Simulated assay, not measured.
Amino acid sequence: MELVVVSVLGADRVGIVAGIASVLARHNANIVDISQTVVRDIFSMIMVVDISKADVDISQLRRELEEEGKRLGVMVGVFHIDVFKYMQRI
């Protein structure tokens, strides 16, 4: 399994989860775990995604998710799970 962490943050609105999930589904990336919350109209979501069967690499997936994030008006970050875990240690 090759895992990435996808983070999404921005003003709450309809379609954020659907937009991000659509990009992942289009590339055969599987959402393994997901957590989302809305606090005072601020939407935040963390996904752990398996890209081992995806038809794109992490760089291309990052570009497409960031593009979708811009369309939705949210910030999107995509990190390989090893990089994400290392960042949390600092």
Rank of each mutant, 00 (worst) to 15 (best):
V56W: 07
M75D: 10
I31V: 15
R40Y: 14
V49S: 01
H80W: 05
V32A: 04
V49Y: 00
K53M: 14
L72S: 04
I58S: 02
Q36N: 04
N30W: 13
A18I: 06
A25D: 05
A25I: 12
D12T: 09
I51E: 00
V14C: 10
M47K: 03
G77C: 07
M45T: 12
V48N: 00
L72H: 03
V5P: 03
V17E: 04
R13L: 06
E64G: 05
I31W: 00
K70Q: 13
G77V: 11
V14N: 00
S35E: 11
S7H: 10
A25S: 06
D12P: 04
D12L: 11
A18R: 07
G73D: 00
F84V: 10
G69M: 11
K85N: 07
A11W: 00
V8N: 01
G77T: 15
R62V: 11
D50Y: 04
S44W: 12
D41V: 10
D57L: 12
F43Y: 07
V49I: 14
S52H: 09
I42F: 13
V17L: 02
A29D: 05
R62Y: 10
D41H: 03
V14T: 15
M1H: 15
I51Q: 02
D55P: 09
V78S: 00
I81Y: 05
G15R: 06
I20V: 15
I90E: 08
R40L: 14
I20M: 09
T37I: 13
D82G: 04
A21K: 08
Q60E: 11
R89E: 05
V14L: 13
M75A: 11
V4S: 03
H27V: 05
A21M: 09
G77W: 07
V49G: 05
